[in-house]
Amino acid sequence: MEFNESFILGCSAIGAGLAVIAGIGPGVGQGIAAGHAAAAVGRNPGAKSEITSTMLLGQAVAETTGLYGLLVAILLLFVKPLLW
């Protein structure tokens, strides 16, 4: 069955929108990490710089899955692989 170009582009846009739902996971994860880091600073204010750097490292790693979703969305919108 043959689809025309606008139909495929519209479906790509819907797919891109669905792909960035992946952002929910990293959002929750980073929030949990930041919350625990805040609690840790409250317990031990002297270790603030170390806690901050550990938190940022962990958050950046947790962010990766969300970025994969973003990449899929960008590929669908700008590279348009379904039109090839």
């Binding site: 950046a60 962010e63 990766t64 970025l67 994969y68 973003l70 990449l71 960008i74």
Partner: peptide, 16 residues
Amino acid sequence: VSLSLRLFANILSGTI
């Protein structure tokens, strides 16, 4: 792959 994709996607999203 994940190291390079992480850096790439972050900077690309900022650029976009």
